[in-house]
């Protein structure tokens, strides 16, 4: 039996975090959640996920700082960023420092699932 793929979700809105966890678990992934950048980095170090989904605006470390810290540790785990409308410049910066994909809020949850599946293939 193949092992479940692991995903770390960093999102400070607890409702959205729970929804993403619920949907990804339904699809058969192992999901770990964090409400701030610091906790997300701890989870990434301890769980060694196959995919990271991170919001841009988060307490302690924001999404860009998280991406920067992950890449500076030579960790190449794919990262999908979630941004708000009007954060295009932040998204460009995120791509520049090593994010792999992004979705702008409000987003269609199935689109996020499809993108995650495509990256994890």
């Amino acid at each position: 039996m193949s092992e479940k793929k692991k995903i770390v979700i960093a999102e400070d809105d607890s409702s959205l975090q729970l929804l993403l966890k619920f949907r990804f678990e339904e699809e058969g992934y192992d999901v770990f959640t964090a409400s701030d950048g610091e906790r997300a980095l701890e989870l990434i170090d301890s769980k060694l996920p196959d995919l990271i989904i991170s919001d841009i605006m988060m307490p302690i470390y924001n999404g860009l700082e998280v991406v920067n810290k992950i890449r500076s540790r030579n960790n190449n785990t794919p990262i999908i960023m979630l941004s708000n409308a009007g954060q295009e410049e932040m998204v460009l910066k995120a791509f520049h420092i090593g994010a792999d994909d992004f979705l702008s809020k409000p987003f269609i949850i199935n689109e996020l699932l499809i993108r995650a599946k495509r990256i994890l293939k």
Partner: peptide
């Protein structure tokens, strides 16, 4: 607050 915050982040059927 739960409904409105979620609505800000989601579109389509869920919204």
């Amino acid at each position: 607050s739960i409904i409105i915050k979620l609505h800000r982040s989601l579109s389509d059927d869920l919204a």
